[in-house]
C-alpha cells in the first residue's frame, strides 16, 4: 500500500467514526426525549419539509392489520400500509419506485422517502402527538 493510501484510509476512518457519533446523536433526538416504554410511536408524514399529518401508532396498530393511508402530495399518489406495527410504502406512481423498495420501518428514527414526491415518512418515539403545548 502506498503512503497516500495509508493517509487516505486513516482520514476516512476518522470521518467514519465522526459520522457514526453524529448519527447516533441525531437518532437519539433532542435531550428531552420522553419515556422508553415500547410502542408509543408517532407516525409523521412530511411533505416538502413540513409535517402534514401525524398519527399515534398505537391507534393505528389496533385497527385491523392492513390499514392504509393514502397520500396525494408532491404531485403524486402514494399508499402506505401499516401492518403489525410496521409501515411500508405499497404503492406509488413515482418514477423509479425507490420508495417501494425501502425496507419497512417500525422503530424510532427510521424513514421511508419518496424523493420525486418530496415525501418523508418517519416514526418518532414520543408520548404526546408531538406538541409542545395545547391551546384551549
Amino acid at each position: 500500500m502506498k503512503l497516500g493510501d495509508k493517509i487516505l484510509y486513516a482520514g476516512l476512518s476518522i470521518i467514519f467514526l465522526i459520522s457514526c457519533a453524529a448519527s447516533i446523536f441525531f437518532l437519539r433526538g433532542s435531550p428531552n426525549d420522553g419515556d422508553k416504554n415500547g410502542a408509543n410511536f408517532t407516525l409523521e408524514i412530511v411533505s416538502r419539509g413540513e409535517i402534514i399529518k401525524s398519527f399515534d401508532m398505537p391507534d393505528l396498530s389496533e385497527t385491523e392489520s392492513g390499514s392504509t393511508i393514502e397520500l396525494r402530495e408532491g404531485g403524486g399518489f402514494n399508499i402506505l400500509s401499516i401492518e403489525d406495527g410496521a409501515v411500508r410504502m405499497v404503492s406509488s406512481d413515482c418514477p423509479g419506485g425507490d420508495c417501494l423498495r425501502m425496507p419497512p420501518i417500525w422503530s424510532d428514527g427510521r424513514v421511508i422517502v419518496c424523493l420525486p414526491h418530496k415525501l418523508v415518512i418517519r416514526l418518532r418515539r414520543d408520548g404526546n402527538g408531538e406538541v409542545d403545548a395545547v391551546s384551549y
Binding site: L12, I15, F16, S19, C20, A22, S23, F26, L27, V46, R48, G49, G109, V111, V113, L115, K118, L119, V120, R122
Partner: peptide, 23 residues
C-alpha cells in the same frame, strides 16, 4: 442533494453506512 430536496437532515444519519459502502 437528497437531504436538501426532502429537507430532512435526519437522513444524514445514514452517513456511516454510506461511507462504509462507498469504501
Amino acid at each position: 442533494v437528497a437531504v436538501m430536496l426532502t429537507s430532512t437532515p435526519a437522513l444524514l444519519a445514514c452517513l456511516p453506512f454510506i461511507i462504509a459502502a462507498g469504501a
